[in-house]
Design a protein around this nucleic acid. Sequence first.
DNA 1: ACGAACCATGTGCACGGTCACATGACCGCG
DNA 2: CGCGGTCATGTGACCGTGCACATGGTTCGT
Lengths: 337, 337
Amino acid sequence: MTGDVTARAASIRDVARRAEVSHQTVSRVLNNHPSIRPETKQRVLDAIEELGYRPNRAARMLVTSRSRTIGILSSSRTQYGPAASIQAIEVAARASGYSVVTSNLLTTDEGAILAEVDHLVDQAVEGIVVIAPQVRVLDVLSSLALRVPYVTLQMTDRVITHALSFDQIAGARMATQHLIDLGHRRIYHLAGPQDWIEAEARMKGFLQAMSDNDVPTTAPILGDWTADFGYRAGVELLRYRDFTAIFSSNDQMALGLMHAVRDAGLDCPRDVSIVGFDDIPEARHFSPPLTTVRQDFPELGRRAVALLLAQLDGSEDYRETIVPELIVRGTTAAPAF
Amino acid sequence: MTGDVTARAASIRDVARRAEVSHQTVSRVLNNHPSIRPETKQRVLDAIEELGYRPNRAARMLVTSRSRTIGILSSSRTQYGPAASIQAIEVAARASGYSVVTSNLLTTDEGAILAEVDHLVDQAVEGIVVIAPQVRVLDVLSSLALRVPYVTLQMTDRVITHALSFDQIAGARMATQHLIDLGHRRIYHLAGPQDWIEAEARMKGFLQAMSDNDVPTTAPILGDWTADFGYRAGVELLRYRDFTAIFSSNDQMALGLMHAVRDAGLDCPRDVSIVGFDDIPEARHFSPPLTTVRQDFPELGRRAVALLLAQLDGSEDYRETIVPELIVRGTTAAPAF
DNA sequence: ACGAACCATGTGCACGGTCACATGACCGCG
DNA sequence: CGCGGTCATGTGACCGTGCACATGGTTCGT
């Protein structure tokens, strides 16, 4: 019927033979070259259809040395933010005719980073989106003199050529200002890991808001993004109770904090107000629903791809920023007394 | 220094010239063929090092028609389970020298499924791991007579050649039995979407446990896995309060249920016991900490890759099962009645 | 001592596309 | 009417690798 199952797949020359044209004409049809008679084109298309021909990526890649693939270098992909970004990037890339390969950064030592970048380079990616937001990842990357362009999803003060992000500083400032506006003066900040750019930016926003309002502040507590850590930190902090509010730099840690508050026999928001960051889908169902800062991850992913593809076409550098939004729910209230 | 930046990358022949051997000898070194004099091998390795040579994947792929790539067909990757599985699969695949490309299934209509499978086939994947657990995805897949092997991460009664999964039925039975053992007799089941295999299996486990213990049961409620749905379903159910416990087929919906219980002025577990499924990292910090069924996703990912690679090497069919574990926390107690 | 078997290596082609160039038909214009 | 230019198509080389086969040297068994 359709021929020997074990036979090789049809090639461009098989199609050519069937359509009674040269292989080059077939190639022209595939790349829709202008100078093709409509009639010839149709004959070729028919032949393609009949043979079930599929262009061979490897061959095309070999001769053009273009892979039409972009790489994602990411860590913590089980977390909501990165996962949502990755999904959005893949969809957007596909829509532009690009494929996506991902690399998981499980640790951030230089060897691991190099290995993952190598892997992406081996795949001949034409560009890289970096979602692994640790500072050292970016440092290593910029020291690498990569011959492929890359964009990061994180923003920072450091000079990064192609950055793109939510304005995390603004988001953190909004969250903090919200607490201050409610009347809180003793506010702790539960930050992310020290070397994370997001953590740095959110901390910066927190400190800005505090000093803008002349509220004295203490050193932020450095966490690891997990609910477990938030819980332990909360238990520790509540031994002194020298605060009325906490700004947590993500929702998971906020959840852990809420757990600790409960365990201490206290009530959130009556005794302690808590603000998170991210607005994961579950945040509105926490007990009580969490006040937090929403980030539009899908939009971020889309823009990342647009930015990267613009670079591939040799456009100029630029940074772009998306402003996040404060979602007020049930974990914040005026301080008790 | 290292030559013209715009020049092409070194090829196997450049290495050969430098090492004063034939290109084929270089190829042998790369594929560590046994018959190479150690001294020659070293000369080649030195040349590779000096030139910074990297094998060209496309060329290798073209001539061997092996891509050393496996594909992941997945939906809902922002959810914890799929995300954790994907990450584990990538790590395991890489360890075996395979690359990974993923395809996102945003809808489950046949066209979308075909498009995504096409995309994977275009990438010349040698095998596919299916994490999109809707029944119709598997139906379409099996009707497709794919020429590449695939494994699914879901288990079902249907005959799927290469399946691998947690024994979801057993997990659901454990959860239900736990509620029954506590003394509950009026138990609702908040299931996943009707066409999800996991949902089906968990429902089956629930029903088995109920009938094994001669507990009468009502029709399960079909949800969509989200906390939002759990909340709405909870609000609805609580208008009648004709139950003392709910088994939710995932943790997110359980969270929504807990929210609804709270909103109704009731207490979990005093008034309503709730069991979830998955044990997402946040579950232990819910209010109160959630009793749930743990699945070891990383292990599942690893086994999926092992199974797939075994098939690529032409091993025999088999199914494999991992038994989940019940984690009892604070959302379950004996009924108050 | 001689052929078989094996070792270490080399030669040429094939994989399936694209690119540069060639070709012939047709058109318009001076 | 001849000549340059565009259109539609064909020809051959080439991308970087692995494979089949060839080659010359060495070892081994009888």
